[in-house]
Design a protein around this nucleic acid. Structure first.
Lengths: 219, 219
DNA sequence: GCCAACCTACCGGGCGGTCGGTAGACTACT
DNA sequence: AGTAGTCTACCGACCGCCCGGTAGGTTGGC
């Protein structure tokens, strides 16, 4: 619930404030509502009401609906950079690095999925230039994972797996958490993160074949 | 591209027609546009224009935008039942059954992802009763996978994995294919299906630990 | 008196949806 | 053969509503 608190603090080191608190609250509320109802189904009035303003009052703080979306996605991407990619870059061993990526990304989602989920679900709501920007950063992330899988392959720990397909698949597994995980559910966040991390590692590490006595039954 | 062709044919065995062809074409076009732009960002005019009708003309065939969405999702769910769940039910061996599920679901997505993707991304566009219906059917699917994982656990092939988390994670991996797979890409559909199926099986089958000499680096 | 922080009132436009109509194919009756 | 009626498959024009966004205040703390 505190994920967007520093969104504004980062952007503006200007002025010891109160305005920035308000702006952060707006971004946070908008992210929550976009996440719940979707970008297009959310009106500017919805957001204004959620922060106790009228629509016109809200426009004192924001430039427009699309800028709001881009700001939220940019924040989510920054979060991914700082909390996942940068820490993982400092891990030399490829397997440990992969574990770091999956665990940290998964934890981010169990803690507050709204901005990160908007990041992947509302791309088409962006202006073309903004979309290009965000897609590029997402692509870099997938490439980073794929490079890690390629390094594992060079070590002989991964055999016969296309790094790109592997990277996309792991990302899919992680992102999907936001669709089913509930903080008040049977498992707590740490347990979910641990389970998913184990599955992810197991999915890519190859130690023998999985041939099966039974009928594959695919045809 | 032919995924929705029989949508109407199935519903109406009545009357050798032409009206049903048109209706099927409408559903197919709508699915494609909803998939590309999202439900809320798609106007009734967009769909009408895509099938060469005016908005008023389109309403001769459909009851409304939400009914259109529900029909598409119902079709996608039927497709999942017929092409994935029913065939898998007939496979006794749990591991072979899991392979069947993943491979068939993945193949469905590489062949035509529009309806199946709408099924998971546009739930909030439905009327409450329709949403309850669809969510229930989706839940049954996840439970079916979880039961299969539980059977694998009883056989000793899966150790220390929560079946529900496992099921959700596999579903996430599969559904994500529609976001990155391109028919004209480096790998063809069958290769992608095979890769993802191998990863899925590997993710859940437990044959020893994955302990790593390096630093897990998660903290 | 000034400026940050709002508000009321409004705008143009696009939305989902409806209404009354009609061209044209087909049928029915004379 | 002609013509009146009927039905399918549409269309142009329109409705009320709500949207994102703005112009022009007003208010309260400094």
């Amino acid at each position: 619930m505190t994920a967007l608190d520093n969104a504004a603090l980062r952007a503006a080191a200007t002025a010891a404030n109160g305005e920035q608190d308000r702006r952060a609250e707006i971004y946070r509320s908008a992210a929550r509502i976009f996440h719940r109802k979707g970008y297009h189904a959310t009106s500017i009035n919805d957001i204004a009401a959620a922060v106790g303003l009228t629509k016109a009052g809200l426009y004192y703080y924001i430039k427009g609906k699309q800028d709001l979306l881009f700001a939220i996605m940019g924040f989510a991407m920054d979060q991914l950079d700082e909390q996942v990619i940068e820490p993982a870059r400092r891990v030399q061993d490829p397997q440990a690095r992969l574990e770091t990526i999956v665990a940290r990304h998964a934890r981010l989602i169990t803690q507050d999925s709204s901005a990160l989920t908007i990041l992947v679900n509302e791309l088409e709501g962006l202006l073309p230039d903004d979309r290009t920007d965000i897609i590029g950063r997402q692509r870099d992330y997938v490439d980073f994972i794929a490079d890690t899988l390629a390094a594992l392959r060079d070590e002989g720990k991964v055999v016969g797996l296309d790094p790109t397909v592997g990277a996309f698949s792991l990302v899919g597994m992680i992102l999907w958490i936001s669709r089913w995980y509930r903080a008040d559910g049977r498992l707590d966040g740490d347990e979910v993160v641990a389970e998913v991390t184990r599955m992810a590692i197991s999915a890519v590490l190859n130690r023998g074949d999985h041939s099966n006595a039974g009928n594959p039954g695919t045809g």
